[in-house]
Amino acid sequence: MISRLEQLKLDALRELDLITGAKELELWRVNCLGKKSELTNILRSLSSLAVEERKSVGAAANRVRAELENGLTQKKCALREIQLAAAAREEDVDVTLPGRPLLTGRLHPITETIYEVCEIFNSMGFQVTEGPDVEWNYYNFEALNIPDDHPARDVMSTSWVDIEADKDRGPMLLRTHTTSVTARVVESREPPIRVVEPGKVYRYEATDATHTPMFHQIDGLAIDKGITMADLKGTLYEFARRFFGEDRGVRFRCDYFPFVEPGVEMAIECLVCNGKGCRLCGNTGWIEILGAGMAHPQVLKRGDIDPETYSGFAFGMGIDRLPMLRYGIDDIRLFYSNDLRFLSQF
């Protein structure tokens, strides 16, 4: 009997192996595992056997049934896989065709640069603050040690607003630098102060590839007890390192701005020639990035901050220059012509 069961199993599995369709499989199940199958008959007839034989034949029959059922399950899965694969072949896509486009908008490269610069200074405790574009002569010039006849005014040709002047604060103008916000901060806040002041600035200049009547700057100011020029260098060096990269050479040299003393200019190694000298850097190997210095005692006094107790530094830089250097843009007007073929590149 046991050998019969063994034979029955071998026959059934061989048959199963050849099956390729669901109908055949069902037929096989009925034949091999169905109510009228030989295996079922054997199982049903177990009761008629002697106890010892019943035990051994019963175990063998159950084993065979388990094996066949297992085979059936596996076959079902295999057939399902074949069926799915066949169906999938019918549903081919061309993966090289473009996807359904999402509408993409971008920040203007100037905005993006301002955010990036602010982020760097934010992380050093500087907070963004803003001031008016239309400004009094006082905050733009007088409060910053730039009286009417100062030669520094010559390089900041001013657009004047046709509104009656204030008797204390002078005529109204479009700010020529964001340092006007520094003058306001010094006047309105108490130390400790750490702020950055991004914004639009204006010059009375004809438009060409390097000049537009409006452009962007960011100024910064840190005032507290014990702030030194070493802190100025460290802070601005950290900015340069993070914005232009670890390996970019940075240079600090003496320069003059009326509202600071000592005055500092920070330059970086030319991004085109890496310091060897080229047309972009005027063969000097260096590109001026910002002006800075220790806050002038006179400026602090005007804001009622005692220069004997407090010290600090101020800096200011052009924003437009930064993406121009980074992306190799050679015409500043592109920023304000708002051609989507330009703006969509960033």
Binding site: R194, G226, T235, E238, F252
Partner: peptide, 13 residues
């Protein structure tokens, strides 16, 4: 100016 050290602000935030 290159002889002046380089430090980060250590004053009160």
């Amino acid at each position: 100016y290159d002889k002046i050290p380089t430090t980060l602000l250590g004053t009160t935030l």
